[in-house]
Design a protein around this nucleic acid. Sequence first.
DNA 1: CCTTGCGTTTCATTGTATGAAACGTTACGT
DNA 2: ACGTAACGTTTCATACAATGAAACGCAAGG
Lengths: 261, 261
Amino acid sequence: MSERPVPRVEAVDRALQLLVALADAGPDGLPLAELAGRAGVNKSTAYRALSTFRLRGFATQDTASGHYRLGPAAFELGDRTFGPQNLAQALHPALVALSQATAELVHLGIMAGQYVLYLDKVEPERAIRVWSAVGQQVPVASTAMGRALLAAREVPDQQLGSYLRHLPAATAVAADRLRETVAHARRHGYAVEIGENEPDVACIGTAIMRGNTAIAALSITALAERMTEARQAELSRLIVREVTPLLPDGLALPATLIDGA
Amino acid sequence: MSERPVPRVEAVDRALQLLVALADAGPDGLPLAELAGRAGVNKSTAYRALSTFRLRGFATQDTASGHYRLGPAAFELGDRTFGPQNLAQALHPALVALSQATAELVHLGIMAGQYVLYLDKVEPERAIRVWSAVGQQVPVASTAMGRALLAAREVPDQQLGSYLRHLPAATAVAADRLRETVAHARRHGYAVEIGENEPDVACIGTAIMRGNTAIAALSITALAERMTEARQAELSRLIVREVTPLLPDGLALPATLIDGA
DNA sequence: CCTTGCGTTTCATTGTATGAAACGTTACGT
DNA sequence: ACGTAACGTTTCATACAATGAAACGCAAGG
């Protein structure tokens, strides 16, 4: 029952309360005196803390009114935690587990405009070499990952056509095929691609959600002849079983995928 | 070219860099010494700053490894800016303008589970805020706002049925009717409801987007007899014209609504 | 023209943030 | 089992930097 004095830095403590007050202020911001009052700090102290915020991008100041608003750096805090470089690191164990459980090649990627950008790749122990390269960009429309992301982001059918422009001839995709695969992904939580990028190579892909936002996707690659519908269902169950327990706090698989498992 | 010394608080400045380092650390967090190194601060200083973060929920510490991770308060920073209480304040001018331009009753609401929660309401003749209906919850399925939100969130048709359970008898909605109205909203950016909550009362509603996430909705209420298809189209154009210039940075109307105007 | 309210600056004083080093654990390699 | 390294935590004297009251300059409004 002994009192444990928690070491705290007064200046930092006040700054954090000021940061919360800034966030509570909303898009229009608040004048300095009001912020100082809400955070319970002296006006001068608040001014210097806010100047420091501004210096680091945690606050911006309306040039006309002088009001202070929350800055972009504060907005990005949460995004950085699950940004590309951290994602690859955080999800690598899940990829390894999935690759071992399926004995297949596994990829992690994010959407970058019209393309899916590969962030990580894990090959099974006994690997037959298949096409893949981290850092490579492949069209959204022709990949399982991209289709899973389109479904998870609830992109309406009308907008799907925009992903069909500028496709390399080798990966031409019919509009019907894209609609069909995305619809499948909306229902089942995973998307498929069979020989649409490389002959005899097939993938199934699923999105990775933070809240109700799709921030990444993973895919399993196999020989097309092995990617039967039964195998697809089996792989989708394996994803749920292997990946779920290894996801960092705040991330999840699509609800439709879990429901189907 | 005079040097303008920007007032800064050293402790706060160091704390902010530590916060960024925390965010960069990702979901697994980092040990104290590593964070201190990255932020360029002394280990003791980092420890006290992180203790202060913990105190305010900006950091959490893994009980097993001792690693520090970004806390929930940091995640919420961005969300608070566009949270319910601030939304109502930030969007009130837009509601007033819309009410004046249309001479109709205007509501603002957010989705809360199976219901739409009213945050604000503006009546045409007096600009006084009437709080009577604010705070009220109405079913998602039977309201224009709810249908607009379902469409903007790209909820697939298969999931719409879940919003039809537990409806009061007075607002019973057929599954076909719900699908039809949501489909309409997906196409045109606005949803309609005609006499489905109160006899002779009709609404059109549209979502309000932050990025590609629907965070709120607004609706215009009128007598059902006046809500002709022509009037609906006119109102949707008025929404685009009146609301768009009054939206805070970072918020937007649905693209499909703007395209139709 | 005066007043009011705002963000900003000044300045002396004190308090407090600081860093080096020591401490107590835990986990690991031998 | 031992020694060792790495970690988070605590201590402590010192100096520096954070502090608040008040003054400043500026713009807007009556």
